[in-house]
């Protein structure tokens, strides 16, 4: 096991270097840099821009910039955000925290809804409920998330006009006067704001999970050992929960590691439309303005999490499935 871990950690190095270098490279072959946006400002002189470019180190060769970045990384320094004039981690971290709340909640929803539905479908395949549930799951998948969120916000505004209040807040992450609330109420407030966007995120992934779950359970239920268990006269409930389910969730557990980078890459365009101050709006800004180190910093964090997540997934798998051993 420990040999395996060491091997995975060694693999981490080329992946990490590859991902960050690729990010660096692709970001820098795009024309212009962070300072180009000031070039058309009549109040700023070209000399000033050249001086800033030098101060930011953007006039150095690409490879050198990368090496210096790597060097600073060894000190735990991800570089400076040009936009904010602050260390990248300080800029990015609060946003990642916010995204974590949204993504975490949506994952919770996903499993709480997806797994039971998948099982239900597997127990009654090719019946009307099966079709209806599939259809509903596809329904969520087939509407682009950013558009779905806009529809919900519109409906909320209509609701407010009709009844004078709204069941959910209209965008944002905290209410007015949030700072004055006691800590527990603060959390309630944030969760209340997160429910709708999290729901929209879930709709996109639900059909995928239920589909896998349904197929898994169906396949497991067709296996010999289930037949054996049934013929032994075990109660159907025991068969289902003790034997079938445990085997059916294995691939889902194996996938949990893959979710980690998703946690920090945020909930995507939903964050923009729902005005959730997560990582996506920041990333879009940073990409637009070519805030180099914010971009590379996010890639670095995300690739690190991916690798850690993969290892975690493998370990979890070994935990659930005794047949799997890593050497």
């Amino acid at each position: 096991m420990s040999a395996y871990l060491v091997r995975r950690l060694v693999h981490l190095v080329p992946t990490f270097l590859g991902a960050t270098f690729l990010a660096f490279f692709v970001l820098q072959i795009a024309p212009g840099d962070f300072l180009t946006q000031w070039a058309l400002d009549p109040k700023i002189r070209p000399e000033t821009i050249e001086r800033m470019r030098h101060n930011f180190g953007l006039d150095r060769p690409l490879l050198l910039q990368y090496l210096i970045w790597l060097k600073n990384l060894l000190h735990g320094d991800l570089g400076i955000s040009f936009m904010y004039q602050r260390p990248v981690l300080e800029v990015v971290w609060p946003r990642i925290e916010n995204s974590l709340i949204l993504v975490g909640l949506s994952l919770l929803f996903l499993y709480l809804i997806g797994i039971p539905i998948g099982i239900y479908q597997a127990l009654r395949p090719y019946t009307l409920p099966d079709y209806v549930v599939s259809f509903l799951a596809y329904f969520g998948l087939a509407i682009p998330n950013f558009f779905f969120m806009l529809i919900l916000i519109f409906l909320l505004v209509k609701f407010k006009f009709a009844y004078g209040w709204t069941p959910f807040p209209i965008g944002g992450m905290t209410s007015q006067g949030f700072e004055q609330l006691p800590p527990l109420r603060q959390w309630v407030d944030i969760l209340w704001h997160a429910i709708l966007p999290a729901f929209v995120v879930v709709t996109a992934d639900l059909s995928g999970l239920t589909r896998v779950m349904r197929a898994q359970v169906m396949e497991v239920l067709g296996q010999d050992y289930i037949r054996t268990a049934r013929s032994k006269g075990l109660a159907e409930r025991v068969v289902l929960y003790k034997h079938a389910l445990r085997n059916a969730v294995i691939p889902i557990i194996a996938n949990i590691g893959g979710l980690l980078p998703g946690l920090i890459s945020g909930a995507g365009l939903v964050e923009v439309v729902a005005n959730w101050p997560g990582i996506t709006p920041l990333l879009l800004d940073a990409l637009n303005q070519q805030d180099l180190y914010v971009n590379v910093g996010i890639i670095a964090l995300s690739s690190l999490l991916l690798i850690v997540g993969n290892i975690l997934g493998d370990l979890l798998l070994a935990l659930v499935d005794p047949r799997i051993r890593y050497g």
């Binding site: 806009l150 916000i153 505004v157 209209i170 944002g172 729902a274 005005n275 709006p281």
Partner: peptide, 11 residues
Amino acid sequence: IYKDLNAALAA
């Protein structure tokens, strides 16, 4: 802060 004008209009 509203990055999306529709969100600002709703607000």
